[in-house]
Amino acid sequence: MPDPILTTTNLQKSFGALKATDSVSLDLRQGEIHAIIGPNGAGKSTLIDLISGRTQPDAGSVTLLGQDVTHAGTAARARAGLGRTFQISALAMEDTVLQNAVLGAMGASGKPWRFWRPALWDADLRMRAEEALRRVGLADDAGKRCAELSHGQRRQLEVAVALTLSPHAFIMDEPMAGLGAEGSRLLTGFLDSLRSEAPILLVEHDMDAVFALADRISVLVYGRVIATGTAAEIRASREVRDAYLGEDA
């Protein structure tokens, strides 16, 4: 088996007496969607912050493409190939859709230190940005101010900005949040095809989407991974049912 793209080893993080992340070891392999599910307060957001570099762990390590990035900041991890989307859209609301995508492309090219030529005149940046917008279905809205977008379109743009980075691994924090049934279905289809480009670590509450997409599922409860397995294995696990899925799952 080839080395995993992303690995966490015994990650620990406490806030006071609360163990938000308790010995979490998991990995993300080439070509897969690895979903993380768990009840509210299980520590999913903390785990994402630890992996993306927003928070430093108390102990344990994060490895990306064989490199230890435990002590690297968010920006360094992004440059190393980590593409993240936010649960609550983090977009420059005053800017246009295209400008938001160009920002991503600029980060990927690592060249924001140009002070004279307008960013939108850069054919290379623009091409990358427009390509990403086209793929998520926002090509026709490129000129709109971000604040004018519907909630669903903002979710699409979140994904598009991550795409402009051409990352080696995606970390998606509830990309379906607040999308209607139709929106979820479309995004599910898109993520399904995206995994062949780069694996996706997917935190998601939409169980239909998780069971439809995930190659593997890890269940997080009170900061611990209580089970990891295929969708069928997780569904069959008594422990998971008791802790989270409930009787009707």
């Binding site: 927003r54 992004a78 983090a90 977009l91 005053e94 400008q99 920002l103 991503g104 980060g107 924001p112």
Partner: peptide, 18 residues
Amino acid sequence: LALGAARQVPQRVETVGL
């Protein structure tokens, strides 16, 4: 463009590697 984004959403700017 990057500066404007850093004013509005610094976490986004970091996430794209800046």
